[in-house]
Amino acid sequence: MTDGWFAGVESGDEAAAAERIRTGRADGPEAWPQQAVDAGFASDEDDYYDQLHAATMTATRAAVAERETADDKQLVHAIRAMADCERTANELAERVAEWAGSRYGESGSGVDFARDVVEREPVDEGDVALQSLAERTVAVADEADDLRTYIEQTAPAVAPNLSALAGPVLAARLVSLAGGLESLAKQPSGTVQVLGAEDALFAHLRGGAPSPKHGIIFTHEYVSGTRPEERGSAARALAGKLSIAARVDHYSGDLRPDLEAELDERIERIRTRGGDGE
């Protein structure tokens, strides 16, 4: 009996061999090539190394893909958690503002106002209760900020080109809306353009409503900062480059700075072309 990676594997069964490479264990190295020949797994040493090469390539390719998807799933959790924290903090801040208005007769709004409330001298039990709620509101808002920092650090490792073009947070949102980097890479660019505008899209498909020109990518300065008449073109150009970036990130992982330069140039042209007609 041997612990070698070829143990229990049919000669030529690359998938089974790759699985053994990934999950096998041994206490120490042994003369595996000799053992494999003796066991009849390989006809000779050359055949052994050919099979080893095929098996390690398959195993490592699969292991890399699995580890990287694991990383993009982490990013999806983080961006969804960040959105939850932001929404919750805003809701709680509204509650704090309403309550504070009833006690102090003045009202502010938002998380900044909740921060204000935390700073006051409590006078009675009611103040204590309100401030406790305000503290938790602020803590949830701070958690959203921490998650944003985490996303800014990790998105460029998971999707370097997409993050360079979209910024890490929008990149993470797109990955999240598509359900992962692989599914984002498989979407046509027209779909990427309207990701996050599903409601408007269904209204359009049901008839009546105009088709949406952009989804979440509206938050990108290249769309929101472009004149309304040209926004559709800007959104199309941006979505086109973003889907190429997602594909490069998923399939090769190379860094392609030329994508950013091409996008800058396209947007520049879109923004100036209508301009001289006005």
């Binding site: 612990d3 070698g4 990676w5 053994r20 490479i21 096998g24 264990r25 041994a26 206490d27 120490g28 190295p29 042994e30 003369a31 595996w32 090539p33 190394y49 050919d50 080893l52 090469h53 390690t56 390539m57 195993a59 490592t60 292991a63 890399v64 580890r67």
Partner: peptide, 23 residues
């Protein structure tokens, strides 16, 4: 064809000792 890539942690030799021969 003589280069065998392994995605493994060098602090865990038991996870590649079933592949690597004495060198």
């Amino acid at each position: 064809s003589n280069l065998f890539p392994l995605l493994k942690d060098a602090r865990k030799p038991e996870t590649y000792a079933h592949v690597v021969e004495p060198v």
